[in-house]
């Protein structure tokens, strides 16, 4: 019996993804999130109406992998670009894709103010508690005691302050309509994240405000663990500080 036949297909790579092999390290969460964004764009049939804003950091090349129009922003400035694109093209779906250094450190002002203005955009926030691209330095979201290239003995609160829960902060703003924290470490988590992304993209046409989706992620090369160990470490250590679920839905 030939199972491998298009009539029996249950899952295939969405055509909204390009054929390029992604540059991410094996097991990196970015790949899964990219795939989910592309799947949502595919299923909503909005490939011609979506403009992505890529960040600086590992996901700087997101534009190579999702086959839509993209602008690549300076570090932290993606929400400013997205603001202008959405204001000038209100019938387009506009999203930013940002890491924790981009969104929670250098781009704090742009992020908070875009959310506070209630821009009708989607902000996808990849939080892996580390600067991946530059070689594993401390991020604002790095956990207390977590070792990084710039906190080799572990993050110290007296020296570095507290891990920043940006998503909680953004949920407090009147401009946000949907703020949720998800992950992509298991089948169930992936499905929930996709559902959240779909909802966020739909929100951006309802003039409700900004949708923020934090995806608590792994950086196995930065964390110096295998992908599977990273997932387990994330559940055990990241989730207590960054708990899963909706923070706001209105």
């Amino acid at each position: 019996m030939n199972i491998i036949d298009s009539a029996n297909l249950v899952y295939r790579k969405t055509p909204v993804m390009t054929d390029l092999t992604m540059h991410y390290c094996p097991g990196c969460s970015h790949g899964v999130v990219h795939k989910l964004v592309a799947e949502v764009i595919d299923e909503m049939d909005i490939q011609d109406k979506t403009i992505g804003i890529a960040p600086v950091g590992c996901a700087v090349f997101a534009y190579k992998y999702i086959d839509i129009d993209w602008q690549q922003a300076a570090h932290g400035r993606a929400p400013a670009l997205a603001t202008a694109v959405k204001r000038l093209l209100p019938d387009r779906y506009v999203f930013t894709y940002q890491g924790d250094g981009d969104l929670a450190a250098i781009g704090t002002a742009e992020t908070i103010h875009a959310c506070n203005r209630g821009e009708n955009i989607v902000i996808i926030f990849i939080n892996n508690g580390i600067y991946g691209m530059t070689g594993g330095q401390m991020a604002p979201t790095t956990l207390d005691g977590m070792k990084t290239a710039t906190s080799p003995s572990g993050r110290s609160v007296p020296l570095n302050g507290y891990p920043l829960d940006m998503t909680k902060l953004l949920a407090e703003l009147d401009g946000t309509c949907y703020v949720t924290r998800q992950s992509v470490h298991s089948l169930g988590a992936v499905r929930k994240t996709k559902k959240a992304l779909r909802k966020a993209f739909e929100n951006s046409m309802l003039e409700k405000g900004t949708s923020v989706i934090e995806v608590v992620s792994t950086c196995n090369s930065g964390w110096k663990m295998t992908p599977d160990e990273s997932n387990k470490w994330m559940v055990e250590n990241m989730f207590p500080k960054y708990p899963m679920g909706d923070l706001k839905d209105r």
């Binding site: 804003i53 922003a73 400035r77 400013a80 202008a84 742009e110």
Partner: peptide, 10 residues
């Protein structure tokens, strides 16, 4: 900073 980056986006 945001202004000039909004200009970039537009």
């Amino acid at each position: 900073t945001a202004s000039i980056n909004m200009v970039y986006g537009a």
